[in-house]
Amino acid sequence: LAKFLQDHNTLSWLHHVTTGHYSSAQKTLMTLSSEESHYLSKKKTLLSLSKLAALASDEPCETVDTIVDDLNSQLDLVLYQETLPGGVLEAYGIDPDTMRVLTPEELIKMYINEDNTSANEYDFKKALDLLEFMKKPLGDEEVEALRLQIWSQAILRDSWEDLDTDNPLEAIKDTIFFRTIELAFTQGVKLHEFLPPVEDLINEPELSYYAANPSFTYLIQAGYEHINRLID
């Protein structure tokens, strides 16, 4: 029976539970969760069960802690999808009860897309946090391109042409762009890695319309200087 069930992961964890092999159950459940793409809720339950199996196992504390940390990070990703704004789900015709598993890239695009009409600094912060789930090394081209795209979209949320250049810090403090930076700062994020270099931002094609506008580049640079003073 064990041999038969081993070939059928979907069932074998039940057998492991019956025989008290919680460490094996934990591994099987984790494998099943990584293979699950049809239902987010099912992936979540597989991750939850895997976590509980780790805690029920006889593995040493340090091993359990490492496994639980890994599972928690995957459960965090589930949470990012569960907390997608209702308006976005509606725009894409997604039923939250039966939705499939979305990739971090898809989630980022949904958080920053125009369909997310009421997007605020929390949405953009979430999009930036999601970059870490892309499982690519730091400085990877694809990740950095997406990071620039998120910041560009944050900038495009506000109309910069009407802002008062005589009073730059006061003028920009209510833009989504600077509110996102402020939020990250208060959460203790290291802004050096978090913020793209100002030149990269201004050269971003999506911002070309604004980049030609001297008062926009002035406001952005004034903001960057202010931040650099804060964090140095």
Binding site: G20, Y22, T45, L52, A56, N72
Partner: peptide, 28 residues
């Protein structure tokens, strides 16, 4: 399992190993 394993409420921290195993038998 989702509710008990969630970090938000951390209900799992109030279970000892034996109780977690009892839970697994029930879920099974």
């Amino acid at each position: 399992a989702d509710i008990i394993a969630s970090e938000k409420n951390q209900i799992y921290k109030d279970f000892n190993k034996e109780q977690l195993r009892t839970l697994f038998q029930k879920l099974r």
